[in-house]
Simulated assay, not measured.
Amino acid sequence: MVGPDLDEVAEAAELLADAIIETPILPLKSARWDTVLPDCASVTLKLELFQQTGSFKARGALFGLRGLTDDQRRVGVVAASGGNHALAVSWAAKMAGVNALITMPEAVDPARIAGCKALGAEISLHGDMAAAFAAMYAAADAGRTIMHPYEAVHMILGAATCGREYALQAPEIDTFVIPVGGGGFSGGMAAAIKQMRPETHVIGVEPMGADTLWRSLAAGSPQSMPEVKTIADSLGAPFALPESFAVAQAYVDEVVRIEDHDMLRAMVQYQEILRITAEPACAASLAALTGPLSDRVAGRHVGLIACGSNISLTRYAELMQAL
């Protein structure tokens, strides 16, 4: 079997229950959504942006930190991230009393750097995401334990607890639309959802400029991006990796791609209707539903996820200038 089974997911959820929030769901059925949404039977949004540290990443990060050996705890951990995973690992490391080094791209939102430092993490900045990953592996060579943002059993299991939770909260949903970074989140969520309800359809969403999983599924093996170019830094994985790819390949039914301007439009819709200041990745599910999926979901019960929202007002305003 590829990925976690339902017993493992349930056990992980129980182990995290003391610290992880069961995030709420919201039916998008007010009159203000009528001119935005396509003709679905229903649309539900899971507000995972209300999770610890503002994203789903807290689930897997805490699960991973709690699984360290004593020797690993003494040396510390390292993680490469453009923001959400960085904050999650910083928080989980503080909870566990473990030193964390976070390697980040230089262009990351300064608010995310400040957030990690406030949680006690050490930060090193690098030219781009690929360079940040290289620095992570170098720190691992020096002894630190890698807290990988997606290629790790604990991250896939953490995502699976979110999928299980959502499926239990909204049993009517027959189509889930999930943002894709490296594939661990979409694959983990899909693994739980599809085992619980095999008839559901799970759709991953990637930016055109970071369509690593789309390329990998088309090729039948993990692929690398020649260049990542998207405003959604949380979705900007430069390569797919074997374990997370295998889980996504097994359970994600398809991947659709969206443009950056689709996410910007969805960010505005969240702000105007729900007063949510969404980062681009947070808006990806809505962008896909109102974009490439709009003519395919008639009569369907659709589940979206607002996966995280760690963005400064300064960065948000900068992005809005592109509209």
Rank of each mutant, 00 (worst) to 15 (best):
L264W: 09
Q72T: 02
L168E: 01
V43Q: 01
F50P: 00
G127Q: 06
V177M: 11
I25E: 00
R73H: 11
A283H: 03
M147T: 04
C116D: 08
A41N: 07
V98R: 03
A10R: 11
A10W: 10
A298F: 15
R74E: 05
G308Y: 11
I193R: 05
L6E: 02
R66V: 13
P171H: 08
E199T: 14
R144L: 13
L28F: 03
S55G: 09
A118L: 08
A210L: 08
A139F: 15
M208E: 09
L157K: 14
D211I: 05
A281E: 02
V75P: 12
N99V: 11
P38K: 03
M147R: 10
R73L: 07
P280R: 03
M189W: 10
V228W: 14
L6Y: 10
A139V: 09
A139T: 01
V78S: 02
A317T: 08
S312L: 07
F133E: 06
L68S: 11
V75E: 04
G64T: 02
E318T: 04
E48F: 04
G3C: 13
L235T: 01
I276T: 02
A118E: 10
V268R: 12
E22P: 12
L16G: 14
Q321G: 09
M129S: 05
F185V: 03
R265T: 13
Y316E: 01
A12H: 13
L304I: 05
A96L: 07
R144P: 13
G82K: 09
A159V: 08
C40D: 02
T35G: 14
G83C: 07
M104P: 01
D211A: 11
H126M: 00
A218K: 03
G308T: 00
L304H: 08
G182E: 05
M225N: 10
T35H: 14
A240W: 05
